[in-house]
């Protein structure tokens, strides 16, 4: 395959993506997609969150997962970086800690694909009996 060096070389890729977009349901809304937020503050970056985010972007599609991957700031769990917050449509957000590239793969295979929980979830969203 020819190397991409300029915007002109990008044209073919753009057309492929456009075709792929047309094939998808037109009604697809951003709110219906899985949201993946990678904590990208000093603590996260030093622990490898760039690599984690790149891994998610590169490996979701091949696993048939449609998601929006974005960045967020420090959530205060600096001891467990890289941290990733995943919100499945209609579900409570879950924060995963120590998401190295290897663990990102595990999250894709287990949580994103089969709703199976993995180790390392930071309990931030639970409600006590008094609150509910």
């Amino acid at each position: 395959m020819e190397k991409i060096k300029s915007l002109a070389d990008l044209k073919r890729i753009k057309e492929n993506v456009q075709a792929k977009m047309d094939l998808r349901e037109k009604s697809e809304q951003v709110e219906e997609l899985i949201q993946i937020k990678v904590a990208m503050a000093t603590c996260g970056i030093a622990a490898g969150s760039k690599e984690t985010m790149t891994y998610f972007i590169d490996h979701l599609e091949e696993n048939g997962i449609r998601a929006v991957v974005t960045q967020t700031g420090c959530m205060g769990y600096c001891y467990a970086e890289p941290t990733v917050e995943i919100t499945k449509p209609g579900k409570e957000p879950l924060v995963f800690g120590d998401v190295t590239v290897a663990r990102a793969g595990e999250i894709i295979q287990k949580y994103l694909k089969h709703d199976e929980l993995v180790e390392g979830i930071i309990p931030v969203n639970y409600h006590t009996i008094h609150e509910s």
Partner: peptide, 28 residues
């Protein structure tokens, strides 16, 4: 900005676009 104008309604965060842009910058 140039890339965004060129892509039009194709999102910058599409994985194929991300990979292509990475290659474009690295090659240059």
């Amino acid at each position: 900005r140039e890339v965004k104008d060129f892509l039009g309604d194709v999102p910058l965060d599409d994985p194929d676009i991300v990979a292509a842009l990475r290659e474009m910058i690295a090659e240059n």
